[in-house]
């Protein structure tokens, strides 16, 4: 008769297992919340299209103020799921009396009809037809009026902001730059909204 070796079966140590599971859980939880884009605040939620902004992975960027500081030209898709669809432009004005956030200013623009759609064939249009489209006229008027109201003399700090979805055609961006440059040194720069790593502040 063969001898039977009685061995005690080894089980998992429950407290040890729970320790490890909790450690891994907490680590994953922390790293996940760090890696996600900031959508916690109302403002963040209003900017769900953030993900469609171009990335500029450099440190030389400026921190974006929650409150609108200057005229902001916003270019978005009419339908966020159709990147080839028509583009809509909004002109967002800051408030002189009180502070306006991005979403409040956008609501104001919608209320005041300060928005227009680029023609779907705007790339095929002649320069004349393009610059006379309702969207271009809206941009031109907004920059001119804002300049007349707030930019009395050439200054490095005079600027117009542009927040445009990543696939925005250069024709639109170029038109905005040309409008600013038509005032010479009065509007020497435009500020582009991008997605960047948190960088070092610069005194541009």
């Amino acid at each position: 008769m063969a001898f039977q070796k009685q061995e005690e079966r080894k089980g998992l140590s429950l407290p040890g297992l729970i320790d490890i599971v909790f450690l891994l859980l907490i680590f994953s939880l922390v790293t996940f919340s760090v890696s996600s884009v900031n959508v916690g605040s109302d403002e963040g939620r209003a900017r769900a299209v953030d993900y469609q902004l171009p990335e500029a992975r450099i440190r030389e960027t400026l921190e974006m103020e929650e409150v609108l500081q200057t005229l902001l030209i916003l270019v978005e898709y009419q339908n966020t799921e159709d990147v080839n669809g028509p583009r809509i432009v909004y002109t967002l004005w800051p408030s002189v009396k009180d502070s306006l956030t991005f979403s409040e200013a956008k609501n104001n623009a919608i209320r005041d009809s300060s928005f227009a759609q680029f023609p779907s064939n705007f790339l095929e249009l002649s320069d004349y037809a393009f610059t006379n489209s309702s969207a271009c006229l809206l941009i031109e008027r907004a920059i001119r009026d804002y300049k007349n109201l707030f930019f009395y003399e050439p200054r490095n700090t005079n600027s117009v902001e542009l927040r445009a979805v990543k696939e925005t055609e250069f024709r639109i961006v170029n038109f905005i730059m040309e409008q600013c440059s038509s005032y010479g040194d009065t509007i020497p720069r435009i500020l582009l909204h991008t997605l960047s790593d948190k960088g070092v502040e610069n005194a541009f």
Binding site: V34, V37, N38, L62, M64, L191, L192, L195, S196
Partner: peptide
């Protein structure tokens, strides 16, 4: 690393 909406001047 988290990406933030920031401003680049041109």
């Amino acid at each position: 690393m988290p990406l933030q909406e920031r401003i680049l001047y041109i």
